[in-house]
Design a protein around this nucleic acid. Structure first.
Lengths: 333, 333
DNA sequence: TACTTCTCTGGAACCGGTTCCAATTAAAGA
DNA sequence: TCTTTAATTGGAACCGGTTCCAGAGAAGTA
C-alpha cells in the first residue's frame, strides 16, 4: 500500500503538500496540485483513514446503541437513522443490546474510547450516573425515544399518546375499554408503562371506572396477543374496544376477532400504537409516533451538536398523530 | 485524556512495559504489573483504539453491506449477524444500500481503505470485476445470500426452493397454480427470478401447462399483494393454489382471501417463501430459508477466513425446509 | 570464579496521516 | 532599487499506541 510519502517522492513535493491536496486546501498551485494528483493516480493511492483519525482526533463515525431488532419500531427508527446518515460522510457503528449489562457496558465505554464522534442511543434510557458520564464526555450524545434532563433528546410523550388513544375510544362512545400490552416492567424502556398511565388518566378524567379484568399486560408478540384477546373477548361482559400497547399486538387482536367472527369495527374497536407499516396494510387505527422521523431527527440533532456543543441540553418533542383507519367506530347503542 | 506515556511516568516504568501490561504479555513481573495497573487505575486511563489500530493494522471491525432494511428478510439476516458478532470482539459498521451506485461505491472503497478487517455482503451479488477486486484484496469477504465463484459464500438455492414450493402444491393435487411475486428484474438480488425458474421447472417436470395469466410479478409489499390476489382469484378459472415469492406477499393473499370469504386452505392453498416470523403467526406454510442462520454462518465463515485465509473460496449451502402449516391442503376433487 | 542463559525492562522507531512554523520566491508598493 | 506582503512549499513534530532490539541483573552451569 502506497503512503503519502511515496506520493510525495513521486511528485517531487513534500508530504505536507500532498496532504494539502488531499484535503483540497486552497493554498496549492494548480501546477503542483496536478503533479500530486497524477502521482496519486499512478500509484493508485488511497489515504488511510485510521491514520487520519489518529491525527485529527475525529473518526467520522457515529455509534448507535439500540435494543436487538426484535420489534418493528426499532427497525423503523434505525431506518430513519440510516436515511439521515446516508447524506453525510459519517459511518455508523451498530451496538445492539440484548441484556442490560450490554447496554451498561456500551454506555460506559463508548464515550471514552475515541471510537466514535457522537453517540445516538435509541429506546434505552440511561440512569443518572450514566447520563452524568455521557453529559461530561467530550463526545456529544443524543437520546431518541428516551429522556434525561442532562442530555439532548428526541422525545415521544407516551403518556399523552396513551391518553390520546383512550380518549379517541371514549369519544366514540366506548365505556368498556380494555388495555392489552407487553409487560409493564421491562429492563429497558418503560414506554408501555407510560402508555398505560395515559390509559388510566383518560379513564379517570372521563369518570369511567377502572376494571382490572380489562388489563392484560404480559403479552409478547402478535401470537400471544391473539391468545390473550380471546381471554378478553370471552369475559362475561367483554370490552367494546381494546387499546393495544403497540401495533403488533393490535394486529394479533384483529386476527382473533376475525377467527371469532367478531366484526371490527362494528362490534369491536381496536386501536394500536406506533404507526408501523403493517398498521397501514391492516387498516389499523393507531397513534402514529413518527418512528422513522425520530431516527432522522436524532441524527440531525447529533450533527448539530457535533458542529457546536449546545450549552444546554436540547429537546425535541415529536408529534403524536391519531390515524383514523378502519378498526375504530362509534359504539353501537 | 491520559496516554500510555503518562501511565509509564506515573508507574516509573517504560512505555513498552505499559503496553505489555495492556496486552497481558507474560513477560512482566507481578510487581511491575501491579504498579502499572495501579497507575492505570489512578489516572483512569483507557487505551486509544485508533492508535492501536494504526499500529497493529487491525481494526476489530467488520463491515456489513446490505440493502436498506425494507424487507423482513434483510432484518432477520442482520439479526443473525449481530447475534454471532456479539460473542466476539468485533464491532460492526453498517453500510446500507439504496441504489446500485451506493453498492458499487462501498464495494469499491471498503476493501482498500483499512477501515474494516473483513467484509460481509448480504443479498447483493457483486459483478465479476467487483468480485475480482474483493478476492484480491487482503481483507476477506464473505457473501451471504449471493454467489460468486471467486468468493466465499453462504448460499440459498432459490431455484430449488421455488421448485420445492411448487412441488408441494402439485403433490397435494393442485394443477392450477399461480405465482405472485415482486418484480423479476431488480437492480439487486435476483432471488425472485430464481424462485420463478423453480416454479416453471416444477410445472414442466410434472407436465403441467404453464399459464401466463397465473403469473403476476409486479407486486411490492403486502398491500399490493392483496390487490393482485383479487385479480388472480377473479379469473374465470381461478387458481386453486398460489405460490407467493415471499412471505409478506403470501400474507397479503391471505388477507384478501379472508375478505372474499374464500376459505384457506379448504378452497385455496397458499405457500410463501422465507420463513419470517410473521409466517409463523399467520400459520403460513412456507419454504424456510433459515435467514437468521445465514447471518450467523456468514459471520462464522468470515471469522475463520480472518484467522487463516482459505486457499480456495469456501461455500456453504443452507438447507431449505418446507414448513407445513395451515395454508396448504389437498385440493378438493 | 567465569561464562552462559534467562527474565525483565526501556528506548527508539514505526504505523500514516495532519499541521505548525519557518523559508523561499514572486508580486506589489514606496 | 529596496521593502513589504502574499503565495507556496517542505521539514519536523505530533497523534498514541506496538514492537524490535539491546541491555541489565539474576540464576544456572562448568
Amino acid at each position: 500500500m502506497p503512503t503519502i510519502r511515496d506520493v510525495a517522492k513521486r511528485a517531487n513535493v513534500g508530504i505536507a503538500t500532498v496532504s494539502r491536496v488531499l484535503n483540497s486546501s486552497p493554498s496549492v498551485s494548480d501546477e503542483t496540485r496536478n503533479a500530486v494528483l497524477a502521482a496519486i493516480e499512478e500509484l493508485d493511492f488511497t489515504p488511510n483513514p485510521i491514520a487520519r483519525q489518529l491525527s485529527t482526533g475525529r473518526t467520522s463515525t457515529i455509534g448507535v446503541i439500540l435494543p436487538y431488532l426484535t420489534m418493528p419500531s426499532y427497525v423503523e427508527r434505525l431506518r430513519g437513522v440510516q436515511h439521515a446518515l446516508a447524506e453525510t460522510d459519517y459511518h455508523m457503528v451498530l451496538f445492539s443490546v440484548g441484556k442490560p449489562s450490554e447496554r451498561d457496558a456500551y454506555i460506559k465505554d463508548l464515550p471514552r474510547n475515541n471510537l466514535v464522534d457522537g453517540i445516538l442511543i435509541i429506546s434505552l434510557p440511561p440512569d443518572d450516573s450514566q447520563a452524568e458520564r455521557l453529559a461530561n464526555a467530550d463526545i456529544p450524545t443524543v437520546l431518541v425515544d428516551a429522556y434525561h434532563e442532562k442530555l439532548c433528546c428526541i422525545l415521544t410523550d407516551d403518556v399523552k399518546g396513551g391518553k390520546l388513544a383512550t380518549q379517541h375510544l371514549i369519544d366514540l362512545g366506548h365505556r368498556r375499554i380494555a388495555f392489552l400490552s407487553e409487560p409493564l416492567e421491562t429492563p429497558f424502556h418503560p414506554s408501555t408503562k407510560y402508555r398505560y398511565q395515559g390509559y388510566r388518566q383518560a379513564l379517570l378524567e372521563n369518570d369511567i371506572p377502572f376494571r382490572s379484568e380489562y388489563v392484560i399486560s404480559e403479552t409478547r408478540g402478535r401470537f400471544k396477543a391473539k391468545k390473550m384477546a380471546k381471554k378478553l373477548l370471552g369475559l362475561p361482559e367483554p370490552p367494546t374496544a381494546i387499546f393495544a400497547g403497540n401495533d403488533t399486538l393490535a394486529i394479533g387482536i384483529l386476527d382473533r376477532a376475525k377467527d371469532l367472527k367478531i366484526k371490527v369495527p362494528k362490534e369491536l374497536s381496536v386501536i394500536g400504537f406506533d404507526g408501523i407499516r403493517d398498521a397501514e396494510y391492516t387498516n389499523l387505527t393507531t397513534i402514529d409516533q413518527n418512528l422513522f422521523e425520530s431516527g432522522v431527527e436524532g441524527v440531525h440533532m447529533l450533527l448539530k451538536a457535533l458542529e457546536a456543543a449546545p450549552s444546554t441540553p436540547c429537546e425535541r418533542r415529536l408529534s403524536l398523530d391519531l390515524i383514523r383507519r378502519k378498526t375504530t367506530k362509534k359504539v353501537k347503542v
